[in-house]
């Protein structure tokens, strides 16, 4: 997969975490990444269409999601419910939207579909059988992962 369309997602994650949560994101060098969602994880899948097709999966540990929503709401949050997953879906949507805008400036015209929430042990079909790039990221409130399976459409 080309760095040209990987970097916008990485950069958008750094920017959105900084602006919305005041949290710094750095690349993690860890290689031990699982295929399926762990027991204490929630995933958000965003489908990409246009010049690039495929999907992006954002994986967050439970405790990190609760902390993110606590930062946003200013309230103690102890359960992952519709309010929490919807906020998480919107954050992932914003990251992907910003990445797609950045791709547009690099001459890739893409669009995204609304976020879909995955629960433990789920694996999105769009990641099956495709070349998947996994980006582990570190923050002070936990480790997240971005899984990317994007193919370039040849015109």
């Amino acid at each position: 997969m080309k760095a040209e369309y990987i970097n916008p997602f990485y950069q958008a994650t750094i920017d959105v975490f900084k602006l919305m949560l005041d949290i710094d994101v750095i690349r993690d060098q860890s290689k031990a990444l699982q295929e399926m969602l762990g027991k204490k994880e929630v995933g958000v899948v965003i489908e990409v269409t246009g010049d690039l097709t495929g999907c992006i999966l954002y994986r967050f540990p439970d405790h990190m999601i609760l902390e993110m929503v606590k930062i946003m709401s200013g309230m103690e949050i102890d359960t992952i419910d519709s309010f929490v997953t919807s906020a998480l879906g919107e954050v992932s949507n914003i990251i992907s939207g910003n990445a797609v805008s950045s791709l547009f400036n690099r001459n890739y015209k893409c669009d995204i579909k609304p976020p879909r929430i995955l629960i433990e042990d789920d694996k999105p079909i769009c990641l099956d059988g495709n070349q998947v790039l996994r980006i582990p990221l570190n923050t002070d409130i936990g480790k997240l992962q971005i899984h990317m399976a994007l193919k370039e459409n040849i015109h």
């Binding site: 959105v16 602006l19 709401s73 519709s82 309010f83 919807s86 998480l88 914003i94």
Partner: peptide, 24 residues
């Protein structure tokens, strides 16, 4: 209730991003 909670989560995140990023 479930639908309203979904709306509230989205609204909160949207507003923070819009004011903290887009409007800036």
């Amino acid at each position: 209730e479930d639908l309203v909670q979904q709306f509230a989560g989205k609204l909160m995140a949207w507003l923070i991003n819009h004011v903290a990023a887009s409007d800036q």
